[in-house]
Amino acid sequence: MAVDRYHLALTELLMQLADDDLVVATRAGEWLGLAPHLEEDVAFSSIAQDEMGHAATYFSLLATIHGGDRDDLAHLRPTMARRNSVMLERPNGRGTYRDEPHFDWAYALARHFFYDTLEIARLDRLVQSAHRPLAEAAAKIRREERYHSQHHAMWLRDIARGGAEYRRRLQIALDRAAADAVDLASVGPMAAEMETFGLLPDASHLGDDWRARVVQALDPLGWSLPPLGGTLNGRHGEHTQDLTLLLRDLGEVYRSSPGASW
């Protein structure tokens, strides 16, 4: 039943891609009006918008493979059916967007840097994917991600030069992001099939590749990659209460009238 395994592996892969972008876009979007200064507010919000656009692309692909409507897939699946990395669902800091948001900019940067580095390593493989529509989408998305990665690299360089307090805060942020990142560069229980069928070429080296790219960016600035931690694996559908709350807020309007044409 190779066809079924192929179908399952492709569904699994598209779900990881779509859920990662949906969740990271939501967290990045929560900086709207709160980023350190107006110009960065615009820049970071547009990055959030890009990520949401990528999520929409992946959900459309998922809908054609898995069946169903892409908005239903984004908003109506329960927490345990989600495949995003646990690191991405964590709040931006203390408080919530609507109630006393005392967010941590260094944490947001560290997390997004880890994630975008993964995205580029993953997209470099996906452009060779045996599933043609995915390979074509990946080529388009990779062009935008290159710009995101320049944005984070610029911030990391400036913070590295900013003095002891800046360096200390970013170190704490890197530690905190890494503490949930054990599942980030993993691709879940169907890794072997993804590689065998050519859906995600060289899937088995994705983790090492991500690690090498992170170290290459951090090392010249005098930081190292902290140990990765976490007891939950988002690729297996294991998540925190943070994701349940995020999905509740994100899908609130959609669930009020499913199927409505907006």
Partner: peptide, 9 residues
Amino acid sequence: GSPAMALML
């Protein structure tokens, strides 16, 4: 905060 940041922004 820096020329690189100014270019990006």
